[in-house]
Simulated assay, not measured.
Amino acid sequence: MAKTKESVTRRAQRVRRQIKKVANGRPRLSVYRSSKNIYAQVIDDSAGHTVAAASTLDTDLKGALKTGADTAAAAAVGKLLAERAVKAGIKDVVFDRGGYIYHGRVKALADAAREAGLNF
C-alpha cells in the first residue's frame, strides 16, 4: 500500500513541476479524488491562495447528488467550480490532474469545467 501512495505522490509532483513550466502566470485547477468524494480548486500559485473551490460536500450539491463518487457528481463539481471561477474573474487556467489518470471522474470534471466557461 505504501508503494502505491509513494508512486501517486511522485506522479503528482511530476505533473505539478511540468505545469509550473507552462503556466505563464495562469492559476492552477487542482483535482483531488477520494473514494467517496471529489474536490477541485483554482489556486493562484503566485499569490499563494485559493481563488475558487467546489466539492461534492458543498451544500449546493450535496442534496442534489445521489453519491459523490460518480461521473455525474464530478461533472456537477466541475460546472460549479467554473461558475465560481468566472465570477471571480478567472477564465484561463492550467489543469492539474494531481497524479490521477485523465479518465473517468477526472475527465468528467474537466469537460464540465470547459463547457461552463474555463479555458485550458
Rank of each mutant, 00 (worst) to 15 (best):
M1W: 06
M1A: 08
M1V: 12
K3T: 07
K3C: 04
K5Q: 12
E6P: 11
E6W: 12
S7K: 14
S7L: 13
S7E: 13
S7N: 14
V8M: 12
V8G: 07
V8R: 15
T9K: 13
T9I: 14
R10K: 15
R10I: 12
A12Q: 10
A12E: 01
Q13D: 05
R16Q: 04
R17L: 02
I19D: 02
I19L: 15
K20E: 13
K21I: 00
K21L: 11
V22W: 01
A23S: 13
N24T: 13
N24R: 04
N24K: 12
P27I: 14
P27H: 07
Y32L: 05
S35K: 12
S35L: 04
S35F: 12
K36A: 05
N37V: 04
N37C: 06
I38D: 00
I38C: 00
I38W: 04
Y39W: 05
A40M: 07
I43S: 02
I43A: 01
D44Y: 01
D45S: 03
D45G: 01
G48N: 12
G48I: 06
G48K: 03
V51C: 00
A52G: 08
A52N: 07
A54T: 14
A54E: 02
A54H: 08
S55A: 08
T56L: 00
T56H: 01
L57E: 06
D58G: 10
T59P: 05
T59V: 11
T59A: 12
L61D: 02
K62R: 12
G63I: 11
A64C: 02
L65W: 13
L65K: 10
L65G: 08
K66T: 05
G68S: 07
G68Q: 09
A69L: 01
A69V: 03
D70K: 08
D70Q: 10
T71H: 10
A72P: 06
A73P: 09
A73W: 06
A73Y: 09
A73M: 05
A74W: 03
A75T: 02
A75K: 08
A76S: 06
G78E: 09
K79L: 04
K79C: 02
K79P: 01
L80D: 00
L80K: 13
L81C: 06
E83A: 10
A85K: 01
A85Q: 08
A85E: 06
V86C: 06
K87S: 08
A88C: 03
G89H: 10
I90K: 01
K91R: 15
V93C: 01
V93D: 00
V93L: 03
V94P: 07
V94L: 02
F95R: 02
D96V: 08
R97H: 09
G99F: 15
G99V: 14
Y100I: 05
I101E: 14
I101F: 06
Y102M: 12
Y102H: 12
R105N: 10
R105K: 15
R105T: 05
V106L: 04
V106Y: 10
K107H: 09
K107A: 14
A108H: 14
A108G: 11
A108V: 13
L109M: 11
R114Q: 07
R114L: 06
R114A: 10
E115L: 09
G117T: 07
N119H: 11
F120E: 11
F120L: 09
F120A: 10
F120S: 00
